[in-house]
């Protein structure tokens, strides 16, 4: 009888959940559909009749404009892809180690160091000293390292990792492992890492997204176009059209630069987002419930 009551609640819950989640999903997807449709619409049609879910006048001009130099954009994809891969792997390694150490109750300075890490989100020296550091002191100008290293860690992800570890890993387990004679690094590698898979997936996802979406580091430090990241490649394309149009004063030439401006913007969003959305389901495999603490043993 209790079970019957419980299943009623479950049904009620599911109706609520399906309904609400469906509405939210539609709200989230709708604008994206408009973006995709807009990117496939003739620019004049956008200018005169606005955006629609189905293109009024179909056109691939926007994509043609962006892929004017396909080798450039493919190169940018490669740079971003490799950078994301390397950065996320290294970052995940460093962050999980830091999170692990800072979660250890027997580590005396864990709170001091946590605070010092957190402190950097509030206080900073600003853009210029940091720029001088990377550019003039570390001499990373125009180097791939300048694209990779600044994104390796963020205070938020370290502390988040620490919380995940504390959360799914009771203190007694350290004690037990220590008694078994496992070293600090071994506990991390063979006990902690396997248990925090959802946490690793989350932090890894966010790291990867940060790398994928970055354009600022390219903008600041890279001067060779073949080293541009994807987002910067696209963003800069937009800016250069705009600038050239404004600078046309005194160009002395009337080489007409008339990009299909609105649809190009939208096509850029599609190009930059597409691959990530395709990869997303793979990441989701790690979001699996039911791994219990007891189920995993050294």
């Amino acid at each position: 009888m209790g079970l019957n009551m419980q299943s009623k609640y479950v049904i009620f819950f599911n109706i609520l959940a399906y309904l609400f989640v469906s509405i939210m999903t539609i709200l989230c997807v709708l604008p994206f559909l408009i973006i995709i449709s807009g990117s496939l619409t003739d620019n004049t049609s956008i200018a005169t009749s606005g955006y629609h879910l189905i293109p009024r006048v179909f056109s691939l001009e926007a994509y043609r404009t962006i892929f004017q130099f396909p080798e450039g954009i493919l190169q940018a994809y490669a740079v971003t892809g490799i950078n994301t891969l390397v950065g996320t792997t290294l970052g995940l390694f460093f962050i999980s180690m830091a999170g692990y150490v800072l979660s250890r109750k027997d580590f005396k300075y864990r709170n001091t160091i946590s605070f010092l890490i957190y402190f950097t989100t509030i206080f900073g020296g600003g853009l210029i000293p940091w720029y001088i550091m990377v550019n003039n002191v570390l001499k990373l100008h125009d180097s791939y390292i300048a694209l990779c290293y600044p994104g390796l860690m963020t205070p938020f992800l370290i502390i988040l990792m620490r919380t995940f570890i504390i959360h799914s890993f009771p203190d007694e387990m350290y004690e037990a492992a220590k008694i078994d004679g496992a070293g600090d690094f071994r506990i991390y590698r063979s006990i902690v890492l396997p248990i925090i898979t959802p946490g690793l997936a989350t932090v890894g996802l966010f790291l990867a997204l940060n790398y994928w979406n970055d354009w600022y580091l390219s903008s600041m430090f890279i001067s060779t176009p073949s080293k541009y990241e994807l987002q910067f490649y696209l963003y800069n394309m937009l800016n250069s059209y705009q600038a050239l149009n404004q600078m046309l004063s005194g160009s002395g030439a009337s080489v007409v630069i008339n990009p299909p401006s609105e649809s190009v913007k939208l096509a850029m969003a599609v190009i930059a987002t597409g691959p990530v959305l395709l990869l997303f389901p793979f990441v989701q495999r790690f979001f699996v419930a039911g791994i219990t603490v007891g189920a995993v043993k050294g």
């Binding site: 020296g125 940091w130 001088i132």
Partner: peptide, 15 residues
């Protein structure tokens, strides 16, 4: 981690 935050955040704080 310590090296990262020193280089990236703490030294530039002179700014």
């Amino acid at each position: 981690t310590i090296a990262f935050f020193l280089i990236n955040n703490y030294v530039p704080m002179v700014g």
